[in-house]
Amino acid sequence: MIAILDYGSGNLRSAQRAFELASDEVIVTNDVKKCLEADGLVIPGVGAFAACMDQLVSAGGKEIIAARVAKSKPIFGICVGMQILFENSYEKQESTGLGLLEGEVSEILAPILPHMGWNTINVAQGSKLFAGVSEEHFYFVHSYAAKNPVFGAINSTCNYGEDFLAAVEIDFIVATQFHPEKSGAAGAKLISNWVGSL
């Protein structure tokens, strides 16, 4: 069973349906027990970093994620759901993240923001997530990103104005800056790669 963490963040319906293409049971919930039982927990996120963190805390998501991490149970952060896994962000003001991944999130240096649309990925060697879809386009919509490779992780990058992390795979943590649930057939394959690894 896959749980999508519901903490009031944007369009969860698409995420649910997209994961249902790969898994028999996908629920959208912030129920602690269900989130802990799930084979994989998806952490979505849109909007501003600080607002997302506030909503996550209000919905009890911080404790849920900490409990899964304590048991090394898989999590998958998407977009701002990836960003909040890092230590901090400099979006508008400095904000503290969950600190599960080393590094910080800052504004992309590019003349036109948000970075909006379909881009390709420089897939790192050994990536399981991108198996079969390393040459494909994925859908991005963001103005901030983590830029430094995470030590010990499989760091795949994208370039828009500068290089930044498009996806990180380390131990039981997977995170993508793009939206696999909005990335058509390529995204569906990537999701099925993750679900298959659980």
Partner: peptide, 11 residues
């Protein structure tokens, strides 16, 4: 919108 988002996985 609901029905479309359930079946079409692009923005």
């Amino acid at each position: 919108v609901r029905r479309t988002a359930e079946q079409v996985f692009i923005p």
